[in-house]
Design a protein around this nucleic acid. Structure first.
Lengths: 216, 216
DNA sequence: TCTAATAATGACAACTATCTCATTTTTGAG
DNA sequence: CTCAAAAATGAGATAGTTGTCATTATTAGA
């Protein structure tokens, strides 16, 4: 028997050492995220996903009840990764303004690195309110921290959090579609700080500070 | 023969005096926008739209090639209305900061008045890049005017325009889902002015100024 | 190696969607 | 009122989708 060198998607890579069931499930999730991102959620039929996962239609139903279920699983798995990545990237940053700017820029960076995930996240964000809340909980904490530190003058409420988060999302989406230039992440971070009440010069400095490369 | 008092949607109302073909077309568009908004674009089948328009399946195809075509027609018709409304509401306002704040608040107001249209516009916005460009062209003009007037210090480019526009959209969407409070429009306008470089106090004053009721 | 549990297959029934077109109905100009 | 043009109807051919299940293949522990 020769090596079966299929390219593994991110989920499948993570599941490489798990049992067959988990591996197939991961393959389906990789396929689904690719189709959601490239062809839209509506174009994705169970058949299409199964085909892309190189698996037969009936197999899909062993792992997921229906399309909604896999969409939810994918969305929450991506969100978990995003949270983990941002958490790592921001460990050790205490200043709230720096944290907000860093989160924005890292998120955009991440979306560019995994375009499928970025697009899928963007679509899912408006679809699963719970998902948005999970991810923005961290953002809210930083905004409140900024108020305590005296860096932000804006009053923090759900709506402000939503606005700041959506600016980041829209920026990532714009970059993915080449409608925003390479400095869009920094520019957005700067705008976020300004609207939160950071003085323009300081906002510019923080938003454009050099980010260290991520350790793997 | 007794009166046939079916509730007419906005498109059908506008087409009341046109010929039958135009009236049926308008009925289909009203039906489509309702379904897009309430059940999502994917749930909308041609059958479902025809049914909601109280018309038989084959009739649909006399008026539109397929679902994409009616979606485009609806989206651009809504965009044209939005532009007209904002244009009316802003006639006579010269100060760029006031114009930006007014546009934001009026847009949110409009979306609340016609929830179906607001939701459909929100979805279509990410789907038809041309649509976004058409609508944001006006916004861009006001942002550039603000720089000329010395009110805005930010440099205006596609990305800034996109960010400001998406803040407005997200606010309307939040209001429509009752996830944002009644002052969200004003709050967003204030944030927009701040990120554009308007001093906080002035931003607050302009964004919360009383808007005159719209004349019909 | 053997074998019970686990996973995958593929055919299929039921359903839904798309689009066409011969026929019927409605409209409005003369 | 008449009647040709315009519009609408609804049956149906074709294709795609969902979800099930008896059968086959694979896996991994004893």
């Amino acid at each position: 028997m020769d090596v079966n060198l299929v390219e593994l998607g991110p989920f499948a890579s993570d599941a490489r050492n798990l049992n067959k069931s988990a591996r197939t499930r991961a393959k389906l999730m990789d396929a689904a995220v690719g189709i959601f991102a490239r062809e839209g959620f509506e174009a994705a039929s169970v058949n299409r996903i199964a085909q892309a996962a190189d698996v037969v239609n009936g197999t899909f139903y062993l792992h997921f009840k229906d399309k909604d279920e896999i969409a939810g699983a994918v969305a929450f798995a991506i969100a978990a990764q995003v949270v983990r990545r941002l958490d790592d990237a921001m460990a050790g940053i205490d200043d709230a303004a720096e944290r907000v700017a860093c989160a924005t820029r890292r998120f955009v960076e991440f979306a560019l690195e995994r375009p499928d995930w970025g697009l899928a996240f963007f679509r899912a964000n408006w679809f699963f309110p719970q998902l948005r809340r999970d991810v923005t909980a961290y953002l809210r904490a930083d905004l409140e921290r900024g108020v305590k530190q005296g860096a932000f003058t804006a009053t923090i409420n759900d709506h402000v959090v939503d606005i700041v988060a959506s600016m980041t999302l829209v920026t990532a989406f714009g970059r993915l579609r080449n409608e925003a230039g390479p400095t869009a992440g920094e520019d957005t971070a700067e705008m976020q700080l300004r609207l939160l009440g950071v003085p323009p010069k300081r906002a510019h400095r923080i938003a454009h500070a050099k980010l260290p490369p991520l350790k793997l």
